[in-house]
Design a protein around this nucleic acid. Structure first.
Lengths: 328, 328
DNA sequence: ACGGCTGATGTAACCGGTTACATTAGCCAC
DNA sequence: GTGGCTAATGTAACCGGTTACATCAGCCGT
């Protein structure tokens, strides 16, 4: 059972035909006689021959694989985006070559270069690489799709989460409920989504003429709790909290209740992401269909490889989900 | 910027040396003159040369990639096991080639064969493939590690979740609390973990001399709720529920409370997996360190490829987590 | 009977790297 | 000056597929 792996030449020898004929037979060409076809099928079975995908892609200049380069992502987001990509990839006969970007800039650049010659295209999500670094690292001539990554607009097709429309829906909703003093718990400053959400919040709250303030968080539950504790201790008054993600919203929610405040009567709470737990807790939030975003990114990339239009930026719109933390 | 991608021969020509010298220089061999080294470095920079990993692995018979073949997994489990594998892989300079096994047996076999020549080893989790199918599908000569997969013991190294010890801890715990009439909500019949948990439950409950029954679920939250509803409607009495996973336990928990039963006073509830939401709901459960399992699988596989001992089966022990649904 | 056509097959170059082996240059000792 | 040694380099085969092109057999019409 542990025989050395057979090559196409072994098959040719055993079937007493040439390698060209074997190759043609295995790839379903018409011009192969029935006799040859049978002999080859027998030889393949006897030898347990499986084509060497690496060699194949070298001569075809085509790998049937797509490289996926992601930063260190939190559980739900990571698995959902990969699931979406996988859905599209396997439907179209592609494999996914995964590379997580831990470590510094240099390692990230190496990781990107390691994709050359392994994949037909790249989906890159690299929020912490600068525009120049990214331009330097992306192998020239490799079709690439940028996801939620700043810069290089126009040079590469990209797909972004439409943070602005999500935030606007939240602020409109809170304003519609008559809330007048809002707090935004922001995510880490180096995160592009966190920044966009904070900016959008500032702008939308301003348009509604609401009193608003922004406190810093880091996307973790504890930072949401800490933010609320600090505000309460400082004697701040507010009737609505909008956290940049659900984790922080949950921390905020539990802290508010522990402090004796009623949600939503005294304070309304809204998150962002719609992670599974949010439904259980009745948290109003903005649903991001992450899998769909991943699927869409891959679909556009593959269409581009197939020769379709290499269109520019695309926005992926999220959706407001109203639950108990904003409606009695 | 969109020049055709340079090859090592282009670099050699521009640096006015042979391809052999370029190859040696780029791979850090000693026997290359300083002068040549510089000229080559210049040429590489000017041309934006990036080695073609596919060609490289063809001649080296080494890809620095590991194939990961998983069934359709639910969010948390999928992302955690991949995270664990990625942690180990990227620490050792390997990439992960991901293939999800949707579709039938034939597609699964094709997916496994597609790995030949792309990877140096395989981590396979294929609970729905029979032993013969698996033996037929695994490319001969490709080091493989089986995860939570029945059969082929001895032929391939494997790592399994130790369902038995987890279940025993649960039943011991419930018995220790004085519970005497237990219900087990089982997972889908074709799932190996579900089967093992149900078997272990039967055995352990028997050893304690407890009254026990098993009802069928499908790992989804709704099936947990449905199971409880059916039992209550039928007038069954019980003081402990052990669901084969947390999702079903949560469905059961909410249904019990909605029916006016107190948890844990009237009925204790235990799940399995320890998904993040369980901590929030105070659900007692069995924690499976999934990432650790994935990491361990990859580590053993890589050790094996490196020539280490190809040891046999390994059990991955989970841990009982006691929370509010079993302790007042 | 023969030229031309069609269909099956084989030969060998190629994809882009690595590397065994041959070759050359440079240096030293005698 | 020459033989022997070492270090640097080049040539070409090889990894395992694909495919352009050449070849060849068989069949047709005239």
């Amino acid at each position: 059972m542990m025989m050395a792996e057979a090559t196409i030449r072994d098959v040719a020898r055993r079937a007493e035909v040439s390698v060209a004929t074997v190759s043609r037979a295995l790839n379903g060409f018409e011009n192969v006689s029935e006799r040859a076809r049978e002999r080859i099928a027998d030889a393949v079975r006897d030898l347990g021959y499986v084509p060497h995908a690496g060699a194949r892609s070298l001569s075809l200049a085509r790998t049937n694989a797509i490289g996926v380069v992601l930063p260190d992502l939190h559980g739900e987001f990571f698995s959902e985006i990969v699931r979406g990509m996988d859905r599209e990839a396997s439907a179209r006969g592609y494999l996914l070559l995964l590379s997580n970007l831990h470590g510094g800039t240099e390692r990230a650049i190496l990781a990107l270069k390691a994709m050359r010659g392994r994949v037909d295209g790249l989906v890159v999500m690299a929020p912490h690489l600068s525009e120049e670094e990214l331009a330097r690292a992306l192998p020239a001539g490799l079709p690439s799709m940028l996801v939620n990554t700043r810069g290089l607009t126009g040079q590469y097709p990209a797909i972004h989460l439409d943070n602005f429309s999500g935030v606007r829906a939240v602020v409109d909703h809170l304003a519609g409920l008559g809330r007048r003093r809002l707090v935004h718990i922001a995510g880490p400053a180096e995160n592009i989504d966190a920044l966009e959400r904070a900016d959008a919040f500032r702008k939308c709250a301003g348009e509604h003429g609401l009193e608003s303030m922004i406190v810093q968080g880091d996307f973790e539950e504890e930072s949401g709790a800490a933010a609320i504790n600090a505000l309460l201790a400082a004697g701040h008054r507010f009737d609505g909290v909008f956290a940049a993600n659900d984790n922080m919203a949950i921390g905020a929610l539990e802290t508010l209740r522990r402090a004796g405040l009623r949600v939503p009567e005294d304070v309304a709470v809204v998150g962002f992401d719609d992670i599974p737990i949010s439904a259980h807790l009745g948290l109003s939030t903005v649903r991001v269909r992450i899998a769909e975003l991943g699927q869409r990114a891959l679909a556009r990339l593959l269409d581009g490889i197939g020769g379709g239009p290499q269109s520019g930026d695309e926005l992926h719109a999220p959706e407001l989900v109203i639950r108990a933390t904003t409606e009695a």
